[in-house]
């Protein structure tokens, strides 16, 4: 038996899974844990659509081995809401209509989440740079940036950040 026995912490919950050593974190999230909010797209870390947050940093789950996530904290789009309340980023995306086809949005929001956690008061330009690795092929960037800026203000106001 050469599958890897993993103890994965995803969205605060521990999961024991057995996965082939070459499977990606994306494979395990979607196929084993049925967390299908994280989308499959380019599979080459080019598009950012599969972005999740691992130990506080945004990563492309398509190119990270699940086996390397043993003992690390993974947060996916499903982990942002709090008891049914949307995260300020999610609210802002809804309010600003920052969603067209929607496919990139989970990755876009997780990219923004990791960025805002480290940069609570970003400039618009910094936000644009931060999401450079996450592609929206509907090209709806204007409203996406608007939403991230609005969310950053709300998060600061909520006193969640210093």
């Amino acid at each position: 038996m050469t599958e890897v026995q993993l103890d994965l912490t995803v969205n605060g919950r521990r999961h024991r899974v057995s996965v082939p050593a070459h499977h990606s974190l994306l494979d395990v999230l979607r196929d084993e844990l049925e967390l299908t909010g994280t989308k499959t797209n380019c599979l080459e870390a080019e598009c950012g659509v599969c972005t999740v947050v691992v130990d506080g940093k945004s990563v492309a789950s398509c190119t990270m081995l699940a086996a390397q996530c043993q003992g690390r904290e993974v947060v996916t789009i499903e982990g942002l809401q709090d008891g049914g309340d949307l995260h300020p980023l999610q609210e802002a995306f809804v309010e600003h209509g920052a969603v067209q086809c929607g496919y990139c949005i989970p990755g876009m929001i997780m990219t923004a989440k990791a960025f805002l956690d480290e940069n609570p008061r970003p400039t618009r330009e910094a936000v644009r740079e931060a999401i450079a690795g996450t592609l929206c092929r509907c090209t709806g960037y204007q409203k996406i940036v608007d939403a991230i800026m609005a969310a950053s203000q709300r998060l600061v106001q909520q006193g969640e950040r210093p």
Binding site: A21, H22, S24, L43, E44, A45, A60, C62, T63, M64, L65, A67, Q68
Partner: peptide, 26 residues
């Protein structure tokens, strides 16, 4: 060997060729 995995994982998927062992350096 694997470190970040950003090249290896893509190569495995594209070529379909899997190594016999992956040695994690992390």
């Amino acid at each position: 060997f694997v470190a970040g995995g950003t090249d290896l994982v893509i190569q495995m998927r594209k070529t379909g060729v899997l190594p016999e062992a992956i040695i994690n350096l992390q």
